[in-house]
């Protein structure tokens, strides 16, 4: 088990390292940083001064290591637009995205797992077909269309919920639905398949043969085992959701890190962009690493990697 964990850790770290190189490249591809920092009216001499002052005249590998060292200490420099530390900007907005992602994930699990279980238990019936059709249809609706439709119906026409912003907990309801929607098909398919697999297994047949009620069999025995892969997927989905929240945050004008990154991109403010890329990737890598380890703990078959 230790060897497995260590191997996975090495992979996670090397992936993190590669992502950091990409993030660093993103920043340097955005233009001559010295010119951007010095401002459009700076004379060539001033630009050179900035270049030297910020160490931009050193070889790229050195600059990268220096940048990595600071990034590892959560120091991503200053935003070109706000002239404020990127870390401060991000930490202020992080809770919004985290909250949004967590609620959305909970919502999608609450809908998708029961739906998947139902579909498996009633395999081949109308319920199953309905659930699967719902999945196919769900995948075809773009997040932003759903978001706009939710605004029109629930915010503007019914006036139940706020249109935008993050002022109250109500503000999170519509965005979470829009974001969670996106994860439902994957979670549902997985819980359905997991359930189908478990239901065909011997111990379930034994339990049934012993005369236990079908509901009890499903809830007490099958669900517990079928849920393991769903937990792992949930962790991965959470990572995907944080990345996908950019569209939802834009539709609902929520000030999370997705929105921040989007605005930063359209303002050519790449210190912010690379920091968000790095942080989201870091969260994703950590989550999948943990999911692998937890999975391996629960299911020894997986430790052979």
């Amino acid at each position: 088990m230790l060897a497995f964990t260590l191997r996975r850790l090495v992979v996670a770290l090397s992936v993190a390292f590669t992502v950091s190189v990409i993030a660093f490249a993103l920043l340097h591809l955005s233009g001559d940083l010295a010119i951007t920092i010095a401002g459009p009216e700076a004379s060539p001499a001033q630009v050179e001064e900035v270049r030297h002052q910020y160490g931009l005249d050193r070889p790229l590998p050195i600059q990268y290591l220096d940048w990595l060292w600071h990034a590892a200490h959560l120091d991503f420099g200053n935003s070109f637009f706000f002239r404020e530390s990127v870390t401060a900007l991000i930490s202020e907005r992080m809770p919004v995205t985290m909250r949004l992602g967590a609620i959305a994930l909970t919502l999608s699990l609450v809908v998708a797992v029961p739906l998947g279980v139902l579909a498996a238990v009633y395999r081949g019936t109308a319920i199953d077909r309905l659930a699967l059709s719902f999945c196919v249809l769900g995948q075809a609706i773009p997040t932003f269309c759903l978001g706009l439709a939710l605004i029109i119906v629930f915010a503007v026409n019914l006036r139940w919920l706020p249109v935008s912003g993050t002022a109250t907990w109500q503000s999170y309801v519509l965005p979470s639905v829009a974001l969670g929607w996106y994860a439902i098909p994957a979670v549902m398919r997985l819980s359905r398949n997991g359930m189908l697999e478990v239901l065909s297994q011997d111990y379930i047949r034994t339990a049934r043969a012993k005369g236990l009620s079908p509901t009890k069999v499903v809830l007490k025995h099958a669900l517990r085992n079928a849920i393991i892969p769903v937990v792992a997927l949930a962790a991965v989905q959470f990572g995907f959701m944080l990345g996908g929240s950019i569209v939802v945050e834009a539709v609902f004008s929520m000030h999370g890190i997705g929105h921040l990154a989007w605005e930063a991109i359209s303002r050519n403010d790449f210190p912010v962009v690379q920091a968000v890329v790095l942080i989201l990737a870091g969260i994703y890598i950590t989550l999948t690493f943990l999911a692998d380890v937890v999975n391996a703990l629960l299911d020894p078959r997986m430790r052979v990697a």
């Binding site: 006036r159 706020p162 935008s164 004008s253």
Partner: peptide, 17 residues
């Protein structure tokens, strides 16, 4: 309040936000 999208501004105005 900075609201980048015109339609969001409109919706907020109509709903009293």
């Amino acid at each position: 309040r900075i609201i980048p999208d015109q339609e969001t501004q409109l919706a907020e105005l109509m709903t009293g936000g």
